[in-house]
């Protein structure tokens, strides 16, 4: 279980991205974080694996205090938390296989990894991860030769290499068209059913309804809603997204 307690983040510029946010994520949940752009979703996800240092508050993962972990422990925690990004964040000039293998960096001997040497086991593991997302034939291609949907699947394969207990997905489908969005989210859903907890930020409400087991909504860094997706009625929607907002559907698939 992941417990987020009174989390706040103030950037050096003075921007308060998160204000006293608390919620729990139970193991096996598909937790979706919604909110407008700039509402603090990305900051929240990055605080969980401390890519961004929270200013205040605590995050516990099965009684392990992530926020207090020294660097070596933090790396051990991070390797159990896979992360998927809106812009995929692949190394464009490296091969797909290298990108996937890099998900293993937290486990392997650092010195051999610096030389670019990977065990046969890791390579097979990487190919299997690519097979799971259906692009094993692209292993030798340069990452930027792939389409957006394929690149995101490489991102998922990289996260899978970490043998994660938790996957943080920061708007994983915001750069993709609606058809691909479902295909990517279905991979995450599949992993979720196999027991991996997923925390995912999303934009489109119909995707939220389709995939979320629970929803947290942020507005200006403040948690304004926590509950099941079906509880978000018109009034709640206006509260989260503002009076001006119109619901946009990803696609009626």
């Amino acid at each position: 279980m992941l417990r987020i307690q009174n989390l706040s983040k103030t950037y050096p510029s003075g921007t308060q991205a998160l204000k006293n946010v608390s919620f729990d994520v139970k193991d096996g949940e598909f937790m979706v974080v919604i909110g407008l752009s700039g509402s603090g979703k990305s900051t929240l996800l990055r605080c969980i694996n401390r890519l961004i240092e929270p200013t205040e508050g605590k995050i516990f993962w099965d009684d392990l205090d992530i926020t207090a972990a020294p660097p070596a422990d933090l790396r051990r925690i991070r390797r159990k938390i896979g992360m998927v990004f809106q812009q995929f964040n692949l190394v464009k000039r490296s091969t797909v296989l290298t990108n996937v293998l890099s998900g293993r960096l937290g486990y392997v001997n650092p010195w051999t990894s610096l030389l670019g040497i990977w065990s046969q086991e890791d390579r097979q593991h990487a190919i299997q991860a690519l097979e799971r997302v259906g692009i094993a034939d692209k292993a030798g291609s340069r990452a930027d030769a792939l389409s957006g949907g394929q690149q995101q699947r490489v991102g998922i394969a990289r996260a899978l290499m970490q043998d994660p207990k938790l996957i943080l997905a920061d708007e994983p489908v915001a750069s993709l068209d609606p058809v691909l969005s479902h295909s990517i989210l279905q991979y995450l859903e599949q992993l979720n059913k196999e027991g991996i907890t997923v925390i995912c930020s999303l934009h489109f409400l119909d995707l939220v309804h389709r995939y979320a087991t629970r929803v947290v909504a942020l507005k200006d860094g403040v948690k304004v809603f926590e509950g099941a997706a079906r509880e978000i009625d018109r009034a709640k929607f206006k509260e989260i997204y503002g009076e001006e907002a119109q619901e946009v559907r990803a696609a009626s698939l």
Binding site: N49, L51, R75, R76, I77, R78, R79, K80, I81, G82, M83, F85, Q87, F88, N89, L90, V91, K92, S102, G103, R104, L105, G106, Y107, P110, G155, R158, M161, Q162, L168
Partner: peptide
């Protein structure tokens, strides 16, 4: 691109 740096840090790399 800072993206890959973020992604590799997130895997627990030193």
């Amino acid at each position: 691109d800072p993206g890959p740096i973020e992604a590799i840090r997130a895997t627990g790399a030193n």
